[in-house]
Amino acid sequence: MDTVTLNAIWQDLSMMGPEIAQALLETALMLGLGLAAALLLGGPLGIVLYLTRPGQLFAHRGLHGVLGWLVNLVRSFPFIILMVSLVPLTRLIVGSTIGPVAASVPLAFAAIPYFARLVEQTLREIPRGVIEAAEAMGASPWQIIRKVLLGEARAGLISSLTILTISFLSYTAVAGVVGGGGIGDLAIRYGYYRFQTDVMVAMVLLLVIIVQVIQYIGNRLAHRLDKR
């Protein structure tokens, strides 16, 4: 690729600067709303899944089975099908099915059970002896949850959140194709429909950079919080 071609590509991308910035904001909005729902609802759901397992503090086979079935049910839906299925609910909540806020509704529905399973799996890695020691010392259930479970699992939870963030970054690209906006929408509109391959390549490279930054930050935080 000669210098003239590279200059032409750079000029095209420079002219698209405002659109790229807007796409980044839309992607950040979708991802932020989806992750917020995962933390606020998926996190507690994962804790409940763990605590209601046989042998745990609030063991309840029936509740655990129902919650586990619901989590698996939502996770079994391909994201594009989940988006279409939730169109009526999205319109009811947001008033529209177009735009990043509307796209965040199915993203949130997908993120909640996904993160719940990650939280449950992370908590299961805590040695049972640690919990039994806290119980023997007279710790209340709330103290065990807050100081033992969440305290011991901090690094693992950060790693789980990092995995969730990177996975759902790709989901925002899918959401963009069906009206959510963002980087995926920009890549398809210019790279596919208008045959501007340079734009698609640039958007892919942008996503790669974002993933690398998220993974680096997640690894650093997890390492800092790891007690081992």
Rank of each mutant, 00 (worst) to 15 (best):
F77L: 11
V84Q: 03
T90L: 11
L86S: 07
L67V: 09
H64S: 04
L63A: 14
F79Y: 13
L92T: 13
G43W: 10
R75S: 01
G65C: 06
G43I: 00
L57F: 04
G43D: 01
G42R: 04
P44Q: 09
L70E: 01
S85W: 14
T90I: 07
V84H: 01
L73Q: 07
G42Q: 05
S76N: 14
V71H: 10
L57V: 11
P44I: 00
L70C: 10
R53G: 06
V84N: 03
Y50C: 06
S76K: 11
T52V: 14
Q56W: 05
G65R: 10
S76Q: 09
A59S: 11
F77T: 13
L82E: 13
V87Q: 10
I47V: 15
I47N: 01
A59I: 05
F77W: 13
L67H: 09
Y50A: 02
R61N: 12
W69G: 14
P44Y: 02
F79W: 07
L92N: 10
L63D: 06
L57S: 05
G46E: 00
L57Q: 09
R53D: 07
H60K: 03
P78G: 03
V48S: 00
I81E: 00
Y50K: 05
V66P: 03
L86W: 06
F79V: 11
P78C: 05
V74I: 14
L67M: 13
L57M: 12
T90V: 07
P88H: 04
G43Y: 07
F77Q: 09
G68A: 12
M83C: 07
W69T: 15
I93F: 09
Y50G: 01
F79H: 04
S76C: 13
L89S: 09
W69I: 15
T52E: 12
Y50I: 01
M83I: 11
V87F: 12
G42C: 02
W69Y: 13
Q56Y: 09
N72Y: 00
G55W: 13
L89K: 09
L70A: 11
L51M: 06
H64Y: 10
I80V: 15
A59V: 07
L63I: 15
N72W: 03
L70T: 02
V87P: 10
L63P: 04
V87T: 15
R53E: 11
L49T: 02
T90Q: 11
P44H: 07
V66W: 13
V94K: 00
S85F: 15
F77H: 08
I93P: 10
F58E: 07
I81F: 14
L67N: 05
R75M: 09
P54G: 09
F77N: 10
V74S: 08
M83N: 05
L57E: 08
L49K: 02
V71F: 09
I81H: 06
A59N: 03
P88F: 02
R91Y: 15
L51A: 04
F79R: 04
R61A: 14
I93W: 05
L86G: 08
V94Y: 02
P88Y: 01
L92Y: 10
H60R: 03
G62C: 12
